[in-house]
């Protein structure tokens, strides 16, 4: 057994060794990227010296938050903190649910209008542009610009803002799902002389229903997080409570509130995930495909 001669050149007629490709380009790309980040770190105007306090102060506040959690949740005032946080969090969940449902229902016709295999070219272009417009504007902006002036402060404004925001992404995803269907059944239904509405209902809609329902549930999960943001400007939900608590620096109560957010969000995600899983199990598309598509949500 001799492996020592591995380093010897073998006797088979050796071909010419190719030269190693230059690494200059990738080095330059990396240097450029690092320079960009460095310049950005400076331009951002962040007071980097404050980072130190993150570790000194941060630890103290973290312990204070933790203290809120270890107290008996059934003793005063902690039981009140837990109840308040839970009530407000549920308000966020309700806002997200109603908002998503509203947005989902409005998005259905837009989905059909924006699908190339359903509508004409001009209709598709116009409705796509409209959906993109909605998608580009954050919910917070809808809330500030339209909902608060008309609907006033409170959960209603937040709900409608979430609904309008959902139309953009859900409309786009529905349109893409419609474009991805098997056209065979469509031809079959058309060939039987069915009306346009029947074709849309039975050949198009029934093919995309599971997928679209999964999109709705995803959007619901996202809207729960988004509703927290709306609270900060007074549009209801857990966000209002959070910003009040932070301005008063009630660390113990903040700890409890954050814990409630984590618990409720994780629970809703689990339930919604299980339902999605069941719905999609019956459809042709894999869960993974749908996850990739919903990255854009």
């Amino acid at each position: 057994m001799s492996t020592a001669n591995l380093t010897q050149r073998p006797d088979v007629t050796p071909a010419k060794r190719p030269t190693e490709p230059s690494k200059t380009r990738s080095t330059l790309v990396w240097l450029g990227l690092l320079a960009l980040v460095g310049v950005s770190a400076w331009l951002s105007g962040a007071r980097w010296s404050e980072l130190g306090s993150l570790f000194t102060e941060g630890w103290r506040y973290f312990l204070l938050m933790g203290q809120g959690l270890v107290h008996n949740p059934f003793s005063e005032p902690y039981s009140e903190y837990w109840t308040l946080a839970f009530d407000k969090m549920m308000e966020s969940v309700y806002m997200a649910w109603i908002g998503t449902l509203m947005g989902a229902l409005i998005s259905i016709p837009f989905g059909f209008l924006a699908a190339r295999n359903v509508s004409g070219r001009v209709t598709v272009q116009v409705s796509r542009a409209f959906l993109n417009l909605i998608r580009a504007v954050p919910e917070l902006v809808f809330a500030i610009v339209i909902m608060l002036p008309i609907l006033g402060f409170g959960p209603l404004a937040g709900t409608v803002a979430l609904g309008v925001g959902a139309v953009g992404t859900l409309g786009k995803l529905t349109a893409e799902a419609l474009e991805g269907i098997d056209m065979g059944p469509v031809e079959a239904v058309r060939a039987s002389g069915a009306s346009k509405v029947s074709v849309l209902r039975w050949a198009f809609w029934s093919q995309v229903l599971p997928e679209v329902l999964a999109f709705w549930l995803y959007r619901f999960e996202i809207n729960i997080r988004a509703s927290a943001v709306l609270g900060v400007i007074g549009a209801g939900g857990i966000g209002s409570l959070l910003s009040q608590l932070f301005s008063k620096r009630e660390w113990e109560q903040i700890g409890i509130t954050l814990a409630v957010i984590v618990i409720v969000t994780v629970l809703v995600d689990m339930i919604s995930g299980a339902v999605r899983h069941r719905i999609i199990a019956g459809s042709a598309k894999s869960e993974r495909r749908i996850q990739e598509e919903t990255v854009a949500l």
């Binding site: 591995l6 380093t7 071909a15 190719p18 190693e20 490709p21």
Partner: peptide, 19 residues
Amino acid sequence: EKELGYTCLERVGIVEKAW
């Protein structure tokens, strides 16, 4: 290490594809 890579590729006669 690159020398080792080249030698092993030469042994199976495919060194021209190294990169």
